[in-house]
């Protein structure tokens, strides 16, 4: 399960360009992954220039 760490996110919205299911929603100040649409492919996490997209496991391990 992928989540956007909003503390790291620069809201560049690039992740949505590689999302196969259009699961990333954002405004001027905020971005989030709609879990109902996410298929856990992880492309957004690979692309993110600041590694703001983390798996739930990694987040809880921190």
């Amino acid at each position: 399960m992928y989540k956007i760490n909003i503390e790291l996110c620069d809201i560049c919205c690039s992740c949505s360009a590689v999302c196969p299911t259009d699961a990333i929603f954002y405004t001027e100040f905020y971005a989030k992954i709609e879990q109902s649409k996410c298929i856990d492919c992880g492309k957004c996490a690979i692309l993110c220039p600041v590694s703001a997209i983390e798996t739930e496991e990694a987040t809880s391990a921190n």
Binding site: S14, A17, V18, C19, P20, L47, C48, P49, V50
Partner: peptide, 13 residues
């Protein structure tokens, strides 16, 4: 279809 594959996008900072 505007989606990009990972080989067609440059991650930048």
């Amino acid at each position: 279809d505007t989606r990009l594959s990972l080989n067609n996008i440059e991650s930048s900072a």
